[in-house]
């Protein structure tokens, strides 16, 4: 059993715990590499099936290729896709020019809140990882949110011996993070090994640019890279790991504790 097998087995265990313990569960699929490997891991955990609905929060500012990719694979893999939108905020003209944090909260966090209310989801599976940024490093695999979606990071449940918080008061919900322990390099190594089809925005253009993290078009930048396929990305990451993965994500740099503030209020 190599390291990727260990990661995979642990994630499958967590997905199965989630599926068993939460009656109304959904998985967030942002179309990025992390949540796409989550879909893959779910199919491994459930022997070719994905019994958990996939929620995509459409801010309408997503890079168009992401929507094409989403619809193609949702059909091909027989996924139950649920698309959510904060129509009210969009109608009122919300966009990133009103402030990146304000926009993220309105279109993503509240967009998510709406769809969770609508479907009554009590558990939400997300593809976040500890190595992405400092605040996420402090997450749990099973992380409670109160009725206002708030994350009380000062009083998190203990997690030991793969026993997770699976009981909770009404009007709270649980976020489940099955790939919390993976690194960016692990994700790409796994994509390479499993031959998981991944959206080509991650691959370098002839001009030597690629996305390392995907988000909304106005707030997501490319990095300089010549990595044209998965194997080349793995090599690139092995030799150049001193730039942070989310360096192309504008909202993180907005101010000192931007990410903590966003996440405490329910951001993914």
């Amino acid at each position: 059993m190599d390291h990727l097998d260990e990661l995979e087995n642990q994630s499958i265990f967590i997905l199965r715990e989630a599926y068993k313990n939460f009656k109304n569960l959904a998985m967030l699929w942002s179309i990025g590499k992390d949540s796409t490997i989550l879909v893959w891991l779910a199919r491994k955990a459930f022997f070719g099936h994905c019994p958990i609905p996939l929620v995509h929060i459409d801010t309408t500012y997503k890079i168009p290729a992401m929507i094409e990719y989403r619809d193609h694979y949702a059909k091909k893999w027989g996924l139950n896709l649920v698309v959510g939108k904060n129509q009210k905020a969009l109608d009122e003209g919300m966009n990133h020019e009103k402030g990146r944090i304000v926009c993220c909260e309105a279109l993503k966090t509240q967009g998510l809140q709406c769809i969770m209310d609508e479907h009554g989801y009590t558990g939400l599976i997300l593809g976040i990882r500890r190595d992405e940024e400092g605040t996420r490093a402090k997450e749990r695999y099973f992380s409670p949110r109160d009725k206002n979606f708030e994350w009380n990071f000062k009083d998190q449940p203990p997690e030991l011996w793969d026993q997770y918080k699976t009981t909770f008061a009404d009007d709270t919900h649980i976020r489940i993070h099955p790939i919390l322990h993976w690194t960016e390099l692990n994700v790409w190594e796994y994509i390479l090994r499993e031959k998981i089809p991944i959206i080509d925005l991650y691959f370098a253009t002839p001009e030597g640019k690629r996305y390392r993290s995907l988000g909304c078009a106005p707030c997501t930048g490319t990095i300089d890279s010549n990595a044209k396929n998965v194997a080349e990305i793995v090599e690139e990451l092995k030799h150049n790991t001193t730039t942070s993965e989310r360096s192309g994500r504008a909202q993180d740099q907005e101010n000192t504790y931007a990410m903590q503030k966003l996440r405490a209020r329910g951001y993914m």
Binding site: E133, G134, T135, A137, K138, F153, K154, T256, Y257, Q260
Partner: peptide
């Protein structure tokens, strides 16, 4: 401070 990511 490199580790202590939370504002608090």
């Amino acid at each position: 401070f490199l580790l202590d990511a939370l504002q608090e």
